[in-house]
Computed example of a mutant assay.
Amino acid sequence: MTIVILNTGCANLTSIKIAIKRLGYTSQITSDPNLLIKSKKLIIPGVGTASAVMNILNQKNLINIIKSIKQPVLGICLGMQIFCKFSEECNGINTLGILNNSSTILLKNSHLSLPHIGWNYITFNKVHPLFKNIQRNSRFYFVHSYIVPVNKYTLATTNYGISFSSVIQKNNFFGVQFHPEKSGDVGAQLLKNFLEI
């Protein structure tokens, strides 16, 4: 049993692996279905486009495997957005359907620029093991243009023109819109909390 980082072909796989190693854990970057099923924890990273990631998951026949996994799964940024049933990105694409809503463009009418890049605050909606030893209104590092709207599975929100889900959980599926591997000590603490759930 190991921690698996799903190889989605995106750019930040190694930085997540290094962040996990700093916490004293070992992980493996792979898309091998057997290793995903046997993993202790699964992390789905996200840099790139929804269509590119979904194409890889389709080609490797991983969609139903991911949806059937019972151990904790963490989606990071795009990895969280594809938990939705649909993404507005790339003229619209069907995604995993773990959440029964759509990932939408962050700002349709605003003076703020896209993508949303940099440090921003998250506001906890409830007490949760993911937030252990993390102070309220902590800042994390974001890079994204699409969001998961606030919904009943939202654990924390962030505001950039509008409020959006920055942390979600549905059953064993956890998601963060920010990049914990790029968020310094507070990001490391959140990763540690996930690995210890």
Rank of each mutant, 00 (worst) to 15 (best):
D32W: 03
A11Q: 10
G24W: 08
V47H: 01
Q71L: 10
I63M: 13
L74Q: 03
L42K: 01
R22L: 06
L35K: 11
I63E: 13
C10E: 08
R22W: 02
I16N: 00
S27R: 05
K70A: 06
A19V: 06
L57C: 04
I43Q: 00
K41D: 02
K67Y: 00
I63F: 05
L36E: 03
N55A: 15
L74R: 02
L13A: 08
A11K: 09
Q71K: 09
I43T: 04
Q71M: 11
V47E: 06
S51R: 14
V47F: 06
P33M: 13
L62K: 07
S68E: 12
G24M: 12
I44M: 00
T49M: 12
R22C: 07
Y25C: 12
Q28W: 00
K41S: 05
I37R: 03
I44T: 02
K70F: 02
S68T: 11
C10Y: 02
A11R: 14
L74I: 03
L57E: 04
G9E: 13
N12S: 05
K17H: 11
A50L: 07
Q28Y: 06
C10K: 03
T49Q: 14
L57R: 09
T49F: 11
K21S: 14
I20Y: 01
C10S: 15
K38N: 13
S15Q: 10
T49P: 05
I29F: 04
N34H: 10
I44A: 00
A19L: 06
N64G: 06
S31A: 14
G46H: 04
P45W: 03
L36M: 07
I37F: 03
S51D: 14
G48K: 09
P72A: 13
A50W: 06
V73H: 00
V47M: 11
I63T: 13
T26V: 12
A52I: 11
N34C: 09
I18T: 10
S15K: 03
G24L: 11
K70H: 10
I63K: 14
L36R: 02
T8E: 03
Q28I: 11
C10P: 03
M54P: 07
Q59N: 15
G48S: 12
P45V: 05
G46V: 01
S31R: 13
I66A: 03
N58R: 15
